[in-house]
C-alpha cells in the first residue's frame, strides 16, 4: 500500500495531476472576497475564519471526482480490486493521498491567505489547527462520495450534491472552532467535535466506500 500512496502523490504532482488546482482555487476565493465585501478591516476580520473554511471546503470539493474516476477509466480500479491488497485499504490510501495533496496544502496556505482577509493575529494558530483536524474528514467523506459515483460518466454534479450535506457538520464545527479561538473564547468543544467527525469518518467510511466500489464495478 505504500506503493499506491507513492504513485498517487507522484501522479498528483506531475503534469495534469491537479495538485495546484485546489490551491489556486483557494487563492482565488480569498483574493476575491475582499473585493466583493469591501476593504473595511473589521468586517473582513470577523468573517475571515468562515470564508477561509468555506474556501477550503470548496477547493477540496473541486478535486474529488478525480479520486477514482481516472483509475476507473484506465482500468486500474479493476486491477486494484483483483489485487492482493484489500479494497478498504485502497480507499484509505486514496483518501490519504487526497488529503496530502489537497487538505494539507490548504491548511498550510490558510494562515498566509488569512493576511489578505485581515484575520486577527490570535486566530492564525486556531485556524490552522481547526483545518488540520477537519480537512482529513473532508477528504475521507469526499472519497466515499467519489466511490458512490465511480461508475457514472460526468458524475461530478451528483458527487457534489451527495457530499455537500455530509460536509456541513465539519464546516460548522471547523469555522466555529477557528472563530472561537480568534475571539479568545473556549474553543475546546468544537475542536473535539471536529476531531470526532474526522476519527469517525476515517474509521467507518473506508468500509462503506469499498462496498460502494464493489457494487459499481459489477
Amino acid at each position: 500500500m505504500p506503493a499506491l500512496l507513492l504513485r498517487d502523490l507522484r501522479l498528483a504532482t506531475r503534469a495534469g495531476g491537479g495538485f495546484g488546482l485546489s490551491l489556486a482555487f483557494f487563492l482565488i476565493v480569498t483574493v476575491l472576497v475582499p473585493f466583493g465585501v469591501g476593504p473595511e478591516g473589521g468586517t473582513l476580520g470577523r468573517i475571515a475564519p468562515g470564508i477561509l473554511w468555506v474556501g477550503a471546503l470548496l477547493s477540496c470539493l473541486l478535486s474529488l471526482d478525480r479520486i477514482f474516476a481516472l483509475d476507473r477509466e484506465d482500468g486500474s480500479l479493476d486491477l486494484l480490486a483483483t489485487a492482493p491488497i484489500p479494497l478498504e485499504g485502497v480507499v484509505a490510501v486514496k483518501a490519504a493521498a487526497h488529503w496530502l495533496t489537497t487538505g494539507l496544502p490548504l491548511t498550510l496556505a490558510a494562515p498566509v491567505l488569512g493576511v489578505l482577509l485581515n484575520l486577527p493575529e490570535a486566530a492564525f494558530g486556531w485556524l490552522a489547527l481547526s483545518l488540520m483536524l477537519g480537512t482529513p474528514a473532508l477528504s475521507m467523506i469526499g472519497t466515499f462520495g467519489a466511490a458512490l459515483t465511480v461508475g457514472l460518466k460526468r458524475g461530478g454534479l451528483l458527487l457534489s450534491l451527495l457530499v455537500l450535506p455530509l460536509y456541513i457538520p465539519t464546516l460548522i464545527f471547523g469555522a466555529e472552532a477557528a472563530k472561537r479561538g480568534a475571539e479568545g473564547l473556549a474553543a475546546g468543544t468544537p475542536h473535539l467535535m471536529l476531531a470526532g467527525i474526522t476519527a469517525g469518518s476515517v474509521a467507518i467510511l473506508p468500509f462503506a466506500a469499498a462496498a460502494a466500489i464493489r457494487v459499481n464495478l459489477r
Partner: peptide, 21 residues
C-alpha cells in the same frame, strides 16, 4: 484496459504493479 498511468514511465508503471503484488 491496461491500467496504465499516462504520466508515469514504463518502468514506473511496472514497478508499481510489482510492488502491489
Amino acid at each position: 484496459a491496461d491500467g496504465l498511468k499516462a504520466t508515469l514511465t514504463v518502468a514506473e508503471n511496472l514497478a508499481f504493479w510489482a510492488r502491489i503484488y
